[in-house]
Structures are given as structure tokens and as C-alpha cells.
Amino acid sequence: MITGIPQSAGFRWAYKAYVTLFFIYLALPLATVCVFAFNNSVFPSLPWEGFTWAWFFGTEAPYIGVFHERPILRSIVTSGVVAFWVSLLAVFVGTCNAFLFVRHEFRGKGFLYILMLLPLIIPGIILGISILVFSSSVANFLEDATGLWFDGLRPGLILVILGQFSFITTFATLVISARLQKFDPSLEEAALNLGATRWGAVRAVTLPFLFPAMAAAGVVAVLMSFENFNTTLMLVGSDAPLTITMFDRLKLGSTPVLNAVSLLLIVVSALLGLASLLLQKRKD
């Protein structure tokens, strides 16, 4: 922090005002979404018709709350299933990648590292269409060759999981590698000296050390999967995850039930985000 620099009181005041305005700007859309989840009206807009919990717990049309709205509940479950698999796959491959890039020297390592980072700079929608085009041609080829159906390669949950996994793995790799780099290899050598096998030492010493990063990567993966839109949009089949369902609703015009879902999403994502930060910051 810089002290002792002459600045006019007016400038300081204006700067503070600007920073305050900025944070209002950041909070405004989210706060609005949350407030209108409690408005006793069928439109998420003014005038304010009074406070209600109906958009959460209501059971009578048109006041059907989130917890009684089947299509939304179903899409939350779908999102959960997708997030679970994406997170599992991304943490597994990310951990393998971390060991590969941190522990091994080999020809073409730099090139592979750049390739590993590429998913970060490919726009999500392009990632989606490229996987769509590729899997469809593979499916066409296999179906022509064998006469069997390959539904897994057509738009649907499997492709959504693969599409999200394809770029979330990069994040998982970066988070887990960062922690593995801080690991003191002499700890593992000590385990080996004490008679542990290679894999035994990794399992007993290195993996527990990596665990916070793996958990953080898992949480980040769940978060990113839950809110991914672009890639999912191109690969989705009949079972739509939450963001897609909400998008379709939004295009048709919305009721405050969307605000209620959004409020729940805001709370859950803030908690997950904080959890991932705490996991990554944990000292040992």
C-alpha cells in the first residue's frame, strides 16, 4: 500500500466514488435477479407486488416453485450427472498429466504442453461443433460398416460430457501441476528407502499431498461443467442440462421461477468457488 503521496482530496474522493460505483455495477445484476425471485408477480419485473416464497415452494399454477417444477428439477439432475462424470474424468486425466509434465523429461514435451493448453484458446462453440462433426462422421462410418447404431456418438449426454471434459481437463492439469511442483521429492525417496514400492510411495506420500489440489480441481470442474453453455449447446440431445433449459425458457419469456433457480445457482456457485479457493490455499 502506498502512503505519503500527495493527492488532492478531490481526487481521492472521486477515485473512491469510482471504485464504489464499480462494485455496485458488479453486484447489480446478481442482486436484481435475487430480489425478483421473491416478487409476488408472474413477471420478473417491477412493480413490486409483495414478498412471496411461492417461486420456491409454490404448488399451484402459475405459481409453481422450483422445487415442484419437474422439467427444471430433471435438468438439475442431468447437470449433476454430467458434472460428476466430467469432474471425475478431468481430475483423473489431470493428475496423470501433472505427473507426466512435472516428473518426466522427454522429447516433444514442450510441444505437448502447448497442445495441452490449446483448449483454453479455442472458443467453446468451435470446440462443440468440431466434436459434433467428428463424432457424427465416426458414427456414420461405423454404422455404414457394421449396420449397428451408435447412439453414443450422436448429440446427447455422452457428447456433452466429452465436450466439457475436453477443455476442463486443461484447468485440472494446471491446478494439480502447480501443487505437484511444490512437492519435495525427498519425502518420496525417504519412503522408498524405508522399503516402500514405487507405487506404494506415491500412494502413501505423494497422493495425500496432492489431494487438496485434486479436490480443488474437482470442485472447479463441477462449477465449470454446471455453468458451461457454449460447448454444451452444440452437443446437447434430448436431455438438456440446466443452463440449456434455462436458456430455452428465457427466450420464450420468463417467470420468476428462473430467478429462484438463479438465486440457488448463485448461492451454490459462490460456496463452491470459495471451497476451491480454500482448498488451494491450504497450508501444510
Partner: peptide, 13 residues
């Protein structure tokens, strides 16, 4: 951390 959809929805309102 909040979905882009929610943020955009906020601006729409």
C-alpha cells in the same frame, strides 16, 4: 463463479 446465463438474465431484467 456464477453462470454467465444468470448474469445475462440480470442485465435483461
Amino acid at each position: 463463479w456464477v453462470s454467465e446465463l444468470v448474469r445475462t438474465f440480470g442485465w435483461m431484467i
